[in-house]
Amino acid sequence: MALEIIESCVNCYACEPLCPNDAIYQASPHFLIDPDKCTECLGDFDDAQCASICPIEGAILDETGVALNLPGSLTGISTEMLAKYQAAVEATYQAALAAKTA
């Protein structure tokens, strides 16, 4: 059993020093967990430490591939709000593009 860090990781280093097994290491493009070392913190802590400090929802998965922090659970930002965010980013980008070509 082991947890996994996926590509949405923002390389904030928060998890790395907390791991009781030194299973987390810096890698490119993002931090990784050595599956041979990871125990999901069993016997050391009630909660997996990396998943307890990770600020990014969905960046850490359990061994079945399920996110430990579900969308909206950490930021309060729902999926609908996130869609709105993406639309806003797109609009800003399009506006910048239009200004450039004008």
Binding site: V10, N11, C12, Y13, A14, I53, P55, I56, L74, T75, G76
Partner: peptide
């Protein structure tokens, strides 16, 4: 780069050279 809390005015996916506000950087 690491933080131990979440604030509602902060987005931890900081990485934008065009934004000027606390919590945003281009390179750690």
């Amino acid at each position: 780069p690491a933080c131990n809390i979440q604030c509602h005015y902060c987005n931890r996916k900081y990485d934008c050279s065009n934004e000027s506000r606390p919590g945003v950087v281009s390179e750690v």
